[in-house]
């Protein structure tokens, strides 16, 4: 249930994102989810890809700083209160959420989260019947 997310350090300059996506394209790597956190000077692109190890190797070869992080992906119903319920389970277990990103479509809302203790979070959410997307669904 734990998914390997890639984080890439990018200077806030036009063209950097294009270079990154070009490398992924050339290596036939597909992005399933992404989010960018930015400051005035730089950004961190976080993404889930279908072939993480291959993507890391390709990016490192081109001198990108790449970091992997364990994240989880929950799926909540696309309705008011469902995210709140999932987060309540986590906070009751003293699990902290560092960041998350998601969207909703066709009645479902997948949300990727970085939490302080992913293994514990998986156990608690499974117990509380919150759906999680397994890593295998992202990887080829």
């Amino acid at each position: 249930m734990i998914i390997k997310q890639l984080s890439v350090f990018l200077e806030n300059e036009s063209g950097r994102l294009t270079e990154l996506t070009k490398i992924l394209h050339e290596n036939n790597i597909n992005i399933s989810a992404l989010s960018i956190a930015e400051t005035e000077q730089y950004g961190i692109m976080r993404m889930i890809v279908d072939k993480p190890d291959q993507a890391i190797a390709a990016l490192k070869k081109e001198d990108f700083s790449v970091h992997t992080t364990d994240v989880i992906c929950i799926v909540t119903p696309d309705s008011p209160g469902s995210l709140n319920a999932a987060l309540t389970y986590l906070s009751e277990a003293s699990i902290n959420v560092a960041y998350m990103y998601g969207y909703s479509s066709c009645g479902k809302a997948p949300i990727i989260m970085k939490v302080s203790d992913p293994a514990k979070a998986v156990a608690i959410l499974t117990e509380k019947n919150v759906s999680l997307i397994p890593a295998s669904e992202f990887y080829k």
């Binding site: 997310q5 984080s7 350090f9 956190a37 400051t39 730089y42 961190i44 976080r46 490192k60 700083s65 790449v66 970091h67 992080t69 560092a98 960041y99 970085k114």
Partner: peptide, 13 residues
């Protein structure tokens, strides 16, 4: 920022 010290969390950077 080297791979070694790079964090995916903005607050840490």
């Amino acid at each position: 920022v080297d791979d070694q010290y790079f964090s995916d969390e903005m607050t840490k950077l």
